[in-house]
Design a protein around this nucleic acid. Structure first.
Length: 296
DNA sequence: CCATGTCAAGGTCAC
DNA sequence: GTGACCTTGACATGG
């Protein structure tokens, strides 16, 4: 099992997701931002390796405006050497990375333009991972999308849009159960119809479910991953007390985490801690997993 | 220099 | 129908 955290590191002192305003776009600005983001990403990955954190979610802001019409920049070519070096580093140390486009990516929207922009954004994420020379185990995770007041139709649109996506996208895309709209059972249904793997979010499952016990739910999501997809991925978080349901905790609670470990499948998977203090909680989680013998 | 408003993109829900 | 909220850092501007 590999353990990681998303996008931001609070220790190394740089950001791998620096961006700027669209109004101040220029080729020079873009080139500088990408260069700085990639060198910071290298520093974060080195830090992670030293700490034994082998799983990391790369920020969607690594290449700002990559899927926007304003982008006239062949960033894959310009930074080919950096991407290649990052990919070699990741592969040679047995690390794994993923990406998670934000809420604007909705392939089941009834609005054709929203779908078109979403596919362009997915394409950007996949091209970035391709540029690093990473295999199909480097995943891009999204939610199912919107409800649009008609769940069945929204699900059907997901299926038909998925089937028309290019192979470069479907080879990396996975769907995640969310905390308000589409639960694990919905995702499993979509897996049946499309083959898309289901990334199990344990915390979202606590927020929204159809009564499935945690261990059974986790197991059923694990089964949607093929060998070529790599070990299944899972997200872990905890409720922040006093905040609305679904708010992520500021730091990991050891008792709750140990309880969670007890409900995990025997089979191998990679775990991402979505806790606000980022690597601090991930390091504690790793320590506990080693103490309990789950990681050697 | 510091505080604060704002940022490409979409949606749901409470009122 | 309208506005808060999601989630988040940091850019950008104005004082």
């Amino acid at each position: 099992m590999r353990v990681g955290y998303p996008c931001v590191n609070r220790t190394v002192g740089c950001s791998a997701g620096r961006t700027f305003r669209l109004a101040s776009y220029s080729h020079e600005r873009m080139e500088r931002a990408v260069g700085e983001n990639l060198s910071c990403l290298a520093r974060i990955l080195e830090y992670n390796l030293a700490e034994g954190l082998l799983f990391f979610r790369i920020s969607s802001d690594t290449v700002p405006f990559a899927s926007h019409p304003v982008c006239d920049f062949e960033w894959v070519d310009r930074f080919a050497g950096d991407f290649s070096a990052l990919g070699s580093f990741i592969r040679s140390h047995g690390m794994r990375v993923s990406m998670h486009p934000d809420q604007f990516v909705l392939i089941n929207s009834p609005d054709r333009d929203v779908v078109r922009r979403s596919i362009a954004e997915l394409d950007y994420h996949c091209r970035l991972l391709d540029a690093m020379g990473l295999g199909p185990d480097a995943k891009v995770q999204i939610h199912v999308g919107g409800l649009y007041r008609d769940r069945d139709t929204a699900m059907r649109r997901f299926v038909s849009e998925y089937r028309s996506l290019p192979g470069a996208v479907t080879g990396r895309m996975v769907i995640e159960n969310d905390d308000r709209l589409f639960c694990l059972a919905d995702c499993l249904d979509l897996h049946e119809k499309t083959g898309v793997p289901v990334l199990f979010d344990c915390f979202h499952h606590l927020c929204l479910n159809r009564g499935e016990p945690m261990d059974e739910a986790f197991d059923s999501a694990m089964k949607t991953w093929k060998r070529t997809d790599g070990p299944p991925m899972a997200d872990y978080s905890e409720q922040e007390s006093g905040k609305r349901t679904g708010s992520h905790a500021g730091s990991m609670d050891e008792t709750r985490f140990r309880e969670f470990i007890g409900q995990c499948p025997e089979a191998d998977f990679d775990l991402m801690l979505e806790i606000k203090d980022k690597e601090a909680s991930a390091i504690r989680a790793l320590r506990i997993l080693k103490e309990t013998g789950r990681i050697i």
